[in-house]
Design a protein around this nucleic acid. Structure first.
Lengths: 225, 225
DNA sequence: ATCTAATAAATTGTCGACAATCTACCACAG
DNA sequence: CTGTGGTAGATTGTCGACAATTTATTAGAT
């Protein structure tokens, strides 16, 4: 609740609730109780309702008239749809990054890639994960497009709603970082088209990994029942 | 205010305010007065504030703490950024439409295209405009992707904020509909890649027309001053 | 006359209370 | 025992009022 001065109370509350959702403390389908949240944050229900309205618009919550707001439930189908969208936005990100990125920024990407490679060799996912985020955030910064950045981050948040993260995260740090290398190579050559395609491919393979992981899990469940 | 029963008062108000913005009755930079709007819609300020919060999240308004909400101002740079994003989303739309569209839907696209062609030959923009919207909405429906549809429509709305619509609309119905023909050809062949590229190209040429129109206008203004 | 400071008006931010609606529980008939 | 109806409790929806902040106005000094 620190940035309450700069952005207003309802926005601060909105971020807090968003955190709860992204951390999974509020799971898909859970109902949000206004008075409960109001007491939790020490405010009245007004700002809580405004915050929820914002999160509904952002796609993290869903509202049912006269019944309240719920954490959005994302099924496999929707998750795959989001992956497709992300893939094409990433293609654009790649094109713009290769066009507008500075030499300094490209160097920093190589640095991150080196750290990622180190994590891969150590098979250290805990180290890999944050660096991977840095990699993609850096690319976003290189686009210079405010709107694209906002939209992309919103999609990433949305994917957190798909709670079988084990499926998403598990696997193939080595493959993933090999794809990073291809992206970096293309961007270093200042080839927007090649960079874009490498980025899109990067997401599509991640999507494909998810699909196969889900199929495997389904088979497993099928055997159990 | 008819769907107040189904979606709640604040949502109905949100749509009303959105209309005001999209119709240009509220122009970029205009300040929204809460009590004024409350009286206009016959409600208290609570629902108004919630509606505004939603529209801020949607990108149509901007909020300044303790000073109120304003209609978002979109400059040329931002408009071009949105065009880029739209182009890549359209590519995805094309791929999905070519993959999942039914034969019936494709026939309906050809029907719309025929009416567009008629409007072109009559040089009748008033007839062209709504049919053009239908064409793209039909393609959206063919994707079967809820999220993509929502995201795309949000971008289209956002572009309405760029108030020099004359620049956007004017021009080249014939070129535009020739591109539609290419899209339809590809989609009839059930070629997702080709369809996607045709769609992306369709948006990028529109963007290019906007760029040249702006340059022309700038030159004109330069001579006047 | 212009700039600054103080004050008044207007506007936003927040809250508590009441009305409308939904949910859970219990009594009762079949 | 099961299903139905009704009542009590809980929750959302809306409102009007007050506090905090900004904006406009006015008075005064240079």
């Amino acid at each position: 609740m620190s940035d309450f001065l700069t952005t207003g109370l309802s926005t601060a509350v909105q971020k807090k609730i968003e955190e709860l959702v992204l951390q999974g403390k509020l799971q898909g389908g859970d109902k949000l109780n206004e008075v409960e949240l109001a007491e939790m944050f020490g405010t009245s229900r007004g700002p809580i309702r405004e915050a929820c309205k914002g999160l509904v618009q952002a796609g993290l919550l869903t509202a049912v008239p006269n019944r309240g707001v719920f954490v959005r439930k994302m099924d496999v189908r929707e998750a795959l749809e989001v992956y497709d969208i992300r893939a094409f936005l990433d293609q654009l990100i790649g094109q713009l990054a290769a066009t507008h990125g500075t030499a300094q920024q490209i160097r920093e990407l190589w640095d991150i890639h080196a750290r990622l490679d180190k994590a891969v060799r150590a098979d250290d996912f805990e180290a890999y994960y944050p660096e991977n985020l840095s990699f993609h955030e850096k690319l976003l910064a290189m686009t210079g497009s405010e709107r694209l950045t906002q939209m992309y981050l919103a999609l990433v948040k949305e994917l957190h709603l798909f709670r079988r993260k084990g499926l998403i995260q598990q696997g193939s740090m080595d493959v993933s970082n090999a794809e990073h290398a291809l992206i970096l190579e293309a961007i270093s050559q200042r080839d927007p088209v090649k960079t874009g395609l490498a980025m899109r491919n990067h997401v599509m393979t991640a999507k494909q990994r998810l699909v196969t992981a889900i199929e495997l899990q389904s088979v497993g469940e099928g055997l159990q029942s």
